[in-house]
Amino acid sequence: MNVHDKYKPLSWWDKTYIPLVIDGLAVTLRHFFRNIRLHILNVIGIKTKERGAVTYQYPEEMRPLWPRTRTLHRLMRREDGSPRCVACMMCETACPARCIYIVAEERPEVQIEKQPKIFNIDLGKCVFCGYCVEACPEDAIRMDTGIIDIASYTRNGMLLTKEQLLNIEPKVENYVSRPDLMEGQPIY
């Protein structure tokens, strides 16, 4: 199609806009009757597999998250329960929103030496770019919890501390399950 076609002058019949109005109404009415039919059938329990409309009724209804969707952060633990994070500040350095605040401290165990004393993420500033996950050399921070309903009445409520981040319960069920794609792979 030539790109200049849209500048083609309308004929007098088109200029009345009657055919276009009829076209548009036809589309609307087709969806209206299809949705009404499916909603009624769904309500009385018939043909439940097909959805009545494309709209998801969030928050009652959760749209399945694609496996790579970045959701709320969490801090990972070692086998002994201590945080995996060694406070190397890579995520803090990579963070373009400067929403990560880490203060390091000495760890009594000599082989690891360093651990975070403070690890705060200010979700009010976070842009969910996922650079922190990319930067982490210890796989200590992940954005795979499946939690997207993050809200608070106060600014302080948006600040997650180390303990909160370590104790987040991931909602893996919010992610769409694609066994064909996910065979033996961790969910990111």
Partner: peptide, 9 residues
Amino acid sequence: IDCPVCDQA
């Protein structure tokens, strides 16, 4: 190669 915990990094 413990650069993440090394102050010299």
